[in-house]
Structures are given as C-alpha cells and as structure tokens.
Design a protein around this nucleic acid. Structure first.
Length: 123
DNA sequence: AACTTGACGAGGG
DNA sequence: CCCCTCGCCAAGT
C-alpha cells in the first residue's frame, strides 16, 4: 500500500496535529515516533503538504531544531513563523524557538498502538 | 527504471 | 553552533 495515498494513514497524523494547543508546537519526528510503525519524519512531512486544506493547524508542526522549514515550498517561512508568533511562540533572530518551552506532548501517548489510537480521538 | 529532491533527523567533526 | 553525511521514503522527471 502507498501510505501517502491512504486516507487513514494521513488521518492519524492530522488527528494528533489537531490536538496541539494554541501557542505550542510538535516536531515531525516526534509525531512519527508516536505513530510508530510505517511512519518516519519524512513521510509525516509529506503528509503535511495537504494539511492546509484538511483544516488542521499545520503551522504548529516544525522541525526538530525549532525552526520552520516551509521556505523551499509554496509556503513562505515567514508566514508560518508569524502565525506562531501571533499565538505567542517566540523566535530568535535566526528563526529558532525554544522547544523545551513550546514543544507539546499529548499526555499519556508517548507511543500509540492501534488500541490507544482509537481512544485518542475521543476527548 | 534511474536519479534527484524534499515541510526530516541523528551523529560526527 | 555550523556543515556534512547518511538513513529514510515518497514524488516528480
């Protein structure tokens, strides 16, 4: 099966992203780690392409260095960064934010198996 | 089918 | 802290 073409595959990523609180962020690798099997930081990044149209707060997902890496694509880095700044996330002059301060972990879900995922969607 | 290019990340120098 | 290499895996050419 082709992960990126599988709706359920993408939904797992979005399900997590939708839960990131305002003013907090998660990294691609972190999400891949939580989902486990079949997910890698790269595929999570790829799935985020379509996030804009899926109604998820895509701006809250950044790279492991605390920077926005949208620059090479259609979305300008400054847009993502300014959206986050509007939520209260502070960046230094080099465009990096303090992950130890803003990184968010969904409570109790350091790693998800199938059973946990079904619970994850419910409040 | 080969080859390049990413919204990535860890590790070494 | 910056730069490079390598592993990763899907897409575009």
């Amino acid at each position: 099966m082709n992960p990126a073409n599988d709706k359920a595959y993408r939904e797992r990523v979005y399900e997590i992203v939708r839960r990131i609180p305002r003013g907090r962020v998660m990294t691609y690798g972190q999400i891949a780690g939580i989902l486990g099997e079949g997910y890698t930081p790269r595929t999570v990044g790829y799935v985020m392409h379509a996030a804009e149209t899926e109604g998820v707060p895509w701006q809250r997902v950044i790279n492991s260095q605390g920077k926005c890496s949208t620059g090479r694509m259609t979305i300008p880095v400054n847009l993502q960064q300014s959206m986050l700044e509007q939520e209260g996330v502070e960046f230094d002059a080099r465009g990096k934010c303090d992950l130890s301060k803003y990184e968010w972990w969904p409570e109790g879900f350091e790693r998800l198996n199938d059973e946990q995922f079904s619970l994850f969607g419910q409040e």
